[in-house]
């Protein structure tokens, strides 16, 4: 089953690259997809594949992108303000935050979103769901409070997309 899905996904990506497909592209693509499957099919996870067929998740994904863009915009203004301010009101530090997300792709997207947002930078992630984040202006030292500031904004949407 896993191999079949890997094959279908590889073939789909091939079609994207060679659009519009003729019979030659299709037949060569079949072979290419078989080759790709033999090498990388093992890396695919079935749960992830099933989720690809849920339209609600796509809707939440679009929402997430919009939210992320908004967050990045706001954070940009904030960082610009801090940099341009004569006294440079920054308070850099590394905080440890907890995430409730279980799915590993979700965790990765979360960490990358934190990095993409100016002012915060995810430094490391542990297996039991802790993130170490470098923050330009540490507002909260406590774990829960910091978590709600940094992670809380994204978590609910990410859970709807990936879990």
């Amino acid at each position: 089953m896993r191999w079949a899905w890997a094959f279908v996904l590889s073939f789909g990506f091939w079609l994207l690259l060679t659009w519009p497909p003729g019979w030659q592209e299709l037949s060569v693509g079949l072979v290419a997809a078989v080759v790709a499957t033999t090498f990388f099919g093992r890396m695919l996870r079935l749960k992830t594949v099933r989720r690809l067929f849920d339209p609600r998740r796509y809707f939440w994904a679009i929402c997430y992108v919009l939210v992320l863009i908004y967050r990045i915009f706001v954070a940009n203004l904030d960082v610009a303000y801090r940099v341009l301010h004569p006294e440079m009101p920054i308070k850099p530090g590394i905080v440890k935050v907890k995430t409730v997300l279980q799915n590993e792709v979700a965790k990765t997207v979360l960490a990358n979103s934190i990095t993409l947002t100016p002012g915060t930078l995810s430094v490391d992630i542990t297996d039991d769901g802790y993130l170490y984040v470098h923050w330009i202006n540490v507002r909260a030292m406590q774990e829960e409070e910091a978590s709600s500031y940094i992670v809380g904004r994204f978590e609910s949407l990410l859970r709807r997309i990936f879990e």
Binding site: A6, S10, F13, L17, A36, F40, K107
Partner: peptide, 16 residues
């Protein structure tokens, strides 16, 4: 974990 996940997601498209 981040690198592992990204690698897992991106390696097959790179191959294709």
């Amino acid at each position: 974990l981040i690198v592992k996940e990204v690698a897992r997601l991106i390696a097959p498209p790179i191959f294709i």
